[in-house]
Measured scan of single mutants.
Amino acid sequence: MSGIALSRLAQERKAWRKDHPFGFVAVPTKNPDGTMNLMNWECAIPGKKGTPWEGGLFKLRMLFKDDYPSSPPKCKFEPPLFHPNVYPSGTVCLSILEEDKDWRPAITIKQILLGIQELLNEPNIQDPAQAEAYTIYCQNRVEYEKRVRAQAKKFAPS
């Protein structure tokens, strides 16, 4: 494992614990031996107030490669969400998460999670990743928002 990646992720964890947006979660997972795995984080993004996503808490896994922060983490909703920019596998399609697009090593975990929260309610229809959600979003916004509200209710924190 890269010392650069681990040191950056340790800084990220410290900064997150000191200050993070209300309702968001970002925690490194534990290895079988109980030690912390900084390369694999369990996160959760709350649906934004005043949107059909409100009330939901959407679980996301963030996986970092050894060359982080040169390369972005892979962000994957578990379980996958109904959304035009979420692949059926759950992987998020967002330009700041793509090395050859808008990724920059200075982007923080907090910025990534806030960017994904923004994307939930403002899909990028130029870059669809899920045919069904994309089609319904474009053709029947009322039905799309109904499905999103049902999903938010399903993923409401207990």
Rank of each mutant, 00 (worst) to 15 (best):
K76N: 15
Y68Q: 02
F82P: 02
L57F: 09
W103H: 06
E132F: 06
T135Y: 08
Q11S: 11
H20D: 05
I109V: 10
K59P: 09
K18L: 04
S70I: 14
T91W: 14
K146L: 14
R149N: 09
A156M: 09
K146R: 11
L97Q: 05
P21I: 00
P28Q: 04
N40D: 14
V86E: 04
K30I: 10
Y144G: 04
A131G: 13
L38G: 02
W41F: 06
Q139A: 10
K30Y: 07
K59L: 10
I136V: 14
L38F: 10
A129L: 00
E78T: 10
I116K: 04
D19N: 07
L9R: 00
A106E: 05
P84D: 07
Y134V: 08
L38T: 09
L94F: 10
P46E: 07
V27K: 13
T135V: 15
M39F: 13
Y68R: 03
T135S: 11
D127M: 01
P84W: 04
P123H: 01
I45A: 01
P72Y: 00
I112P: 02
Q130W: 13
M62K: 05
F22W: 04
Q111N: 14
T35A: 09
N40Q: 06
N121G: 12
V148Y: 03
H83L: 01
K14I: 09
W41C: 00
Q139C: 10
T108M: 14
L38S: 01
L120M: 11
R13I: 03
C75L: 15
Q126F: 09
L120N: 02
Q111T: 13
T108F: 15
L63M: 14
F77I: 02
P32S: 12
E145V: 13
E145P: 05
F82N: 03
K110H: 08
L57I: 10
G3D: 14
D127G: 13
D127A: 10
N140F: 01
W41L: 00
P123M: 01
V27G: 08
N31Q: 10
F82D: 02
A106C: 10
G3L: 10
N140D: 13
P79W: 14
A44W: 09
I112K: 08
C43T: 15
Y68K: 04
K48Y: 01
H83P: 02
S71P: 06
S2P: 09
F82E: 05
P28A: 10
F155R: 04
W53R: 03
Q126W: 11
E98N: 15
I4M: 13
S2C: 15
G50I: 05
M36K: 07
G50D: 06
E12W: 05
K153W: 06
W41K: 06
I112L: 15
E132I: 06
F155Y: 11
P79K: 14
R104N: 01
P72K: 05
M36A: 03
N121Y: 09
C138F: 05
L60W: 04
L6Q: 11
L6Y: 15
P105Y: 03
G34D: 09
G23R: 04
E143V: 13
A152K: 02
K154A: 12
A106M: 00
S71W: 14
N121D: 13
C43N: 11
E12K: 02
T35F: 00
R61I: 09
Q151E: 04
I125S: 08
L81S: 03
T35C: 01
I107K: 06
K18M: 07
L94T: 03
Y87M: 08
R104Y: 01
Q151G: 06
L97G: 06
D102Q: 00
S158E: 05
T29K: 14
Y134A: 10
R61D: 11
F58Y: 13
V86A: 08
G56I: 02
P73A: 12
W16V: 02
F24E: 08
H83Q: 03
P157D: 10
M62V: 12
H20P: 02
A106D: 04
T29G: 12
E54F: 13
P105C: 12
L97S: 12
S70E: 09
H20G: 01
K76S: 15
P73M: 15
E98P: 11
Y144E: 01
R147G: 07
R13S: 02
R141M: 15
Q117C: 12
A131L: 09
L120D: 02
S89L: 10
D33A: 02
F64T: 04
R149G: 09
I125F: 10
Y68G: 02
F64E: 06
K48V: 04
L120T: 07
F64W: 06
P52L: 09
Q11L: 13
K65A: 04
R141Y: 10
R149Y: 07
Q130T: 08
K30L: 06
K153G: 01
A106P: 01
E118F: 15
A15P: 07
P105V: 07
S95N: 14
A156D: 15
E98Q: 02
F82K: 06
P28G: 15
K110P: 09
K74R: 14
L81D: 01
L6D: 07
Y137F: 09
C138A: 15
L63D: 14
D66L: 12
I45C: 14
N140G: 03
P157N: 10
T108E: 14
L119E: 05
K146W: 02
M39N: 11
A152G: 07
K101V: 13
K110G: 05
K65I: 14
S158K: 08
K74F: 15
P46I: 09
K154E: 10
F155W: 00
A152C: 03
K59R: 13
R149P: 05
G23N: 11
K49W: 08
T35V: 03
A15G: 10
V25M: 10
V142D: 15
P80Y: 14
S89Q: 15
E132M: 09
W53G: 05
Y137Q: 06
A150N: 12
T108D: 09
N40P: 06
Y137K: 06
K18A: 05
R61G: 10
L114N: 12
P80H: 12
K65Q: 13
H83R: 02
D67I: 05
K18P: 00
K153M: 13
P105M: 09
R104I: 01
R8V: 14
R141K: 10
A44C: 03
R8W: 04
K18I: 05
N140R: 10
K101F: 11
S71D: 15
Q117V: 06
H83A: 03
R17T: 01
T51R: 03
E122T: 14
T29P: 04
K110T: 06
F155H: 09
F82I: 04
Q11R: 13
E12D: 00
F58I: 05
